[in-house]
Design a protein around this nucleic acid. Structure first.
Ligand SMILES: [Mn+2]
Ligand SMILES: [Mn+2]
Ligand SMILES: [Zn+2]
Ligand SMILES: [Zn+2]
Lengths: 144, 144
DNA sequence: ATAGAAATGATAAATATTATTGAAAAGTTT
DNA sequence: AAACTTTTCAATAATATTTATCATTTCTAT
């Protein structure tokens, strides 16, 4: 597992390769996402970035996330609620989702699925497992 | 596997039990979803319902889908794009998603995952697998 | 048939996302 | 370095999606 600093260096390297400019905003958006483990919404990332760059625009955050996704450094996750959430952890991993509050946690599943490369005409390349349930907090709230 | 008619009867029965009124709009929305196997968006369901009830309101479709989900007759799926999609197939099954065009197909995976009832404090109750790839149509388009 | 409760339709409001645009920054050529 | 071209930026406008409001209609039990 790489640390934030190494990941940021990788980002800089990748940008140079592709010919993307390394702007403070891009770095800030990526850094915020690297440091957050709760799969934040665009709005949440925006609020965090604003602490460093108060004049940043929400549209810039949207654009940057789109760019980061395109070059494969972040993933868009969208299993709950109706706003997109992002994840800087691009390694194959799975999610535990609270159906009450929407909390999304990473989970490392030992069990692996063997997915055929071709399935119903699709050429497959990855899979993800979402496990649904109630987080501990929501469980205690429900009892009350 | 029940047919549409049986499912609609079950719906009527369930409504009576819970005290929900059986309105033509509700039946129409559910019927449209029962007959569609492509996980349509709300807008798509609305367009279909309008063919039967030209004066139906989009808000009613949203409301009805929410109600149907609440009583467990439909599921909201949201893995691609940024509008909700619905599925009247509530049995445990999984999905094949084309990352190019967003097509979502059902898939019957023989492999099963054994999910512990308790995981990281969560009380789990179900899981779903999303397999990502390119549909056959998008594969041929890409070669051109 | 009537009354009361609940649902609908039309529309407004709220959220979420994308497109546009002019300016600034960076890169190139001379 | 100046002039020119290209890329990116930020702000805003525009669009898309979802939810709330409320007067009216419909459903259901009596
Ligand atoms: Mn994750
Ligand atoms: Mn399905
Ligand atoms: Zn929760
Ligand atoms: Zn496709």
């Amino acid at each position: 597992m790489q640390n934030t600093h190494e990941k940021l260096e990788l980002f800089v390297k990748k940008c140079k390769e592709i010919g993307l400019k390394i702007t403070p905003q891009r770095l800030a958006v990526y850094e915020v996402l690297l440091k957050s483990y709760n799969h934040p919404t665009v709005e949440e990332i925006y609020e965090e970035v604003k602490k460093m760059y108060p004049y940043v625009s929400l549209a810039t955050v949207y654009r940057t996330l789109e760019t980061l996704e395109k070059i494969g450094l972040v993933k868009r996750v969208c299993f709950w609620g109706n706003s997109a959430r992002y994840d800087a952890n691009t390694s194959e991993h799975h999610h535990l989702i609270c159906e009450k509050c929407g909390r999304i946690e990473d989970i490392d599943l030992e069990q692996k699925l063997a997915i055929p490369e071709n399935l119903q005409g699709f050429k497959t390349h990855s899979y993800s497992v979402n496990i649904y349930g109630l987080c501990s907090e929501c469980q205690s709230n429900q009892q009350a």
